[in-house]
């Protein structure tokens, strides 16, 4: 059921990116989609009553300096977290690129409306 809410967030972002005419609104729609996808991937790895994937002292076997089996059965999935960490930082870079294109287009055409930005200028 939380997956459905998350997917609804994605669909709202898709609607914003497809229907709206303002360039900044399209960028906002893409950002909302990014949030929804990141949240969905983290949700896939969650388990009820889980602990963060950080080895605490209670999960450390004192003799062998190994993690215990209890840590394996209670930690949430660390792999989606590592991949989403990459995706979040990349989304910042793409946001900067998109917004700079918007600012430059505004400086050239004087509007954010994509239906008025139709003429090609050399």
């Amino acid at each position: 059921m939380p997956y459905a809410f998350c997917f609804l967030l994605f669909v709202i972002g898709l609607y914003c990116a497809v229907v709206k005419k303002n360039m900044v609104k399209i960028v906002i729609g893409i950002m909302v989609m990014e949030y929804a996808v990141n949240l969905f991937l983290i949700m896939l790895g969650y388990r009820f009553g889980g602990v963060a994937p950080v080895v605490d002292r209670e999960f450390l076997d004192a003799e062998t300096q190994q993690v215990t089996a209890g840590f394996l059965n209670s930690a949430v999935d660390p792999l989606p977290q590592a991949l989403v960490l990459t995706a979040i930082v990349i989304s910042l870079g793409s946001l900067a690129l998109m917004i700079s294109i918007c600012i430059r287009t505004y400086g050239k055409y004087g509007t954010f409306d994509i239906t008025e930005i139709r003429r090609l200028k050399g």
Binding site: G45, P53, V54, V55, L60, Q65, Q66, V67, F71, L72, A75, D77, P78, L79, Q81, A82, L85
Partner: peptide
Amino acid sequence: RVTSTYTAMGLRETGAANIV
């Protein structure tokens, strides 16, 4: 096995307490 390998071997192979 990807996730369970990272979780189980992360501390021993890399020495980092934070698996991520």
